[in-house]
């Protein structure tokens, strides 16, 4: 009998793939329901303003130093790396414009969002998962509070609204890094650098890049909250939720970025 039971538990590869596909579609369905619930809860009173501000402080303000350092290095390195190629064409004077377009359109939003997913996504995922496994969320429900509104809506709104702010700050610091990079081997005045930067930037560079950061923030917040809120494997699930929040959050950033670039090119 024991031998028969053991044979029954061995799965064929096809059955494994089928099971994984089933799990994937269930996750997509749950995440969609979770997103709809978020939208519904976000627009119905009562609003958790103070908790939202606290989360804005945690996810926005406290992420700023990390984002600022990354942004500065990004601008500096991109400038130093681009210089030799442009110098081959005798187009070094195009360096500020080229770096500015790269930073504002793509590198600033995406790198900042990835850093944000790493720092904030894992934090939210782990925090909510540990609340779930220690039954704090259940306790909130029992006491009549709405844990979804208090935990998920505030955090997701904070990530959605704070990431664009962080990206704007990061872009500014990156451009300063690019200015420093330009002056390491060349000599460009501060005024000339920023005149060249804003001469080549257009609204079609700035607005789509800013709008997509709201979606990046929404994706990072929603996925982290979903993974944390639905954690169910005890303490092991906490680590798993934190990890999944970062991995899927980062993946979603790239997918949204790809959709955004296609969408933007329709209007250009």
């Amino acid at each position: 009998m024991e031998g028969k039971a053991a044979i029954n538990t061995v799965q064929t590869p096809e059955a494994g793939i089928g099971k994984r596909m089933r799990k994937f579609f269930i996750s997509v369905s749950d995440l969609s329901a979770f997103t709809l619930r978020f939208v519904k809860e976000a627009f119905t009173p009562k609003y958790e303003i103070y908790e939202f501000i606290k989360q804005a402080y945690l996810v926005g303000y406290q992420s700023f130093p990390l984002v600022a350092i990354t942004g500065f290095i990004m601008g500096l390195v991109l400038t130093i790396q681009s210089r030799p190629t442009l110098a081959q064409f005798g187009a070094e004077s195009w360096l500020p414009a080229m770096v500015a377009v790269s930073i504002v359109r793509e590198i600033g939003p995406v790198i900042t969002a990835l850093i944000f997913a790493g720092k904030v996504g894992s934090g939210i995922g782990a925090e909510l998962a540990s609340m779930k496994v220690t039954e704090q969320i259940d306790a909130m429900e029992v006491s009549g509070a709405n844990p979804f509104k208090y935990l998920v809506v505030t955090r997701t709104l904070a990530t959605t609204l704070m990431l664009p702010v962080l990206v704007v700050a990061s872009d500014g610091i990156s451009l300063f890094g690019a200015y420093v990079g330009c002056n390491l081997k060349g000599d460009v005045s501060f005024k000339l650098f920023f005149l060249q930067v804003f001469d080549k930037l257009t609204f079609s560079d700035v607005f789509p890049a800013t709008i997509k950061t709201f979606f990046f923030g929404l994706a990072v917040g929603l996925i982290a909250c979903y993974k944390g809120y639905n954690s169910n494997k005890g303490t092991a699930g906490v680590g798993e939720s934190a990890n999944a929040s970062v991995v899927y959050g980062s993946l979603c950033i790239f997918i949204i970025d790809m959709i955004a670039v296609q969408f933007t090119s329709l209007f250009n």
Partner: peptide
């Protein structure tokens, strides 16, 4: 933090405009 970032964004928009 939000005010400074928004001011930076506004200045950028103004300069481009």
């Amino acid at each position: 933090f939000v005010t400074v970032s928004l001011a930076l964004f506004t200045v950028a928009i103004y300069l481009i405009g």
